[in-house]
Simulated scan of single mutants.
Amino acid sequence: MLKVILIGTGNISRFLFDVLNVHPSVDLAQVVGRNTQALEYFGKSTPVSRKFDNLMEADVYILAISDDAISEVAHQLDIKKGMLVHTAGSVSMEALPAELRRGVLYPLQSLSGSIPEKMQEIPLCVEASIEEDYSLLEKLAYCISNRVERINSEERRQLHLAAVVANNFSNHMFYLASEICEDQGVPFDLLRPLIRESCNKIMNLSPYEAQTGPARRGDQETIDEHLEMLKESSLQKIYSTLSESIQTTYGKEL
């Protein structure tokens, strides 16, 4: 049985806690964090602590905290044996103390604290320094998901960028679309079937193949009309954000 200590109390910690705490191959021995109120969520079934310098012994210590705090907190931990891993997409493994066995366990998913649907399909990107630690980390990762990939720090950094573009940027476009609808007094709800179908298509087609509309048809007149509509005073607040994106997307020869 793998003995695991979870450091942090945010969304990723809650997700990992909910999954690992009920897994028969994992002993989730302790949760450590500074937020006393947040620790109450974990303390109902697992020992908790606010002390980073007095950790129990474990096979794996999972540092699930904000990216900019990883290096500072990692160097404060008193770990005598076991492996320390962080969960960030954009932070190198080198941010962890060199004298420790170290690695990365990065779930490639937007997590809100609850267990997502189709959890077993969530890619887990792992990195370690030696084969023995890769084996340990993969053993833990397969307790969470059926898809585990070895991804180094530079590959993960680029993958994280792609994930932000695909997820966060797309969601911001949905927000801008909702602003247009609100400005014109039409319900955004009318767009939901279109958004759902677009997301469904991308599961089976490449983004290039899934492209439709004026871009696919080469309809420059409609493209120009859309750009002019965005210049109208009532929509000026989103013109600068959308115009370059539209030019880039529509400008490609499809």
Rank of each mutant, 00 (worst) to 15 (best):
Q76G: 10
A98T: 10
E57Q: 14
L191R: 08
C125S: 12
Q30L: 09
K231A: 15
A162M: 03
R150K: 09
I151G: 12
M203F: 11
K44C: 09
L235Y: 01
P97Y: 01
R14I: 09
S90T: 06
K201V: 03
L20T: 04
L6Q: 01
L28Y: 12
I238Y: 01
Y134E: 14
K3L: 09
V165P: 05
Y250M: 01
N54Q: 06
Q247W: 13
E232V: 05
G218L: 13
T36S: 15
M93H: 05
K80W: 11
E57D: 07
S129R: 12
D53K: 08
I246T: 11
D67E: 12
K139L: 08
I115G: 13
E232P: 00
H75D: 06
E228R: 10
R216K: 14
G251W: 15
D78I: 12
A210T: 08
I223W: 02
M56D: 08
T87Y: 02
Q184I: 11
L77S: 04
Y208W: 08
Y142T: 01
E221R: 11
C143W: 13
I62S: 03
T248R: 15
A162H: 03
E40T: 15
P107D: 03
A95K: 01
Y142E: 02
L159Y: 13
I70K: 03
L63G: 13
K81M: 14
A163K: 08
G82H: 09
L2W: 04
I62D: 00
D219F: 14
N168H: 07
V22A: 01
Q109M: 08
E221T: 14
E40M: 12
R102F: 03
E197Y: 02
N146M: 03
P193H: 06
S45K: 03
L159P: 13
D133T: 15
E179M: 10
T248D: 07
V73F: 07
P187F: 04
N152W: 14
S110E: 07
E179H: 05
L136C: 06
I180V: 09
H226W: 15
C143S: 02
R34K: 15
S112A: 11
L191G: 02
Y175M: 02
T212A: 08
L108S: 00
F188N: 03
R14A: 03
A177G: 13
I223A: 02
T36W: 01
I122E: 00
Y239L: 06
A177K: 01
I202E: 00
L242M: 15
N171T: 12
L105H: 00
L140Y: 13
Q30R: 04
S178V: 11
L159I: 12
N11I: 06
H86W: 14
Q30C: 04
S240M: 05
V165A: 12
C125R: 02
T241N: 07
S243R: 07
C125A: 15
V26G: 02
P47Y: 06
S245I: 10
S66Q: 09
F17E: 00
L63W: 11
S233Q: 05
Y175N: 04
N54K: 09
M93V: 14
A64W: 01
H160G: 08
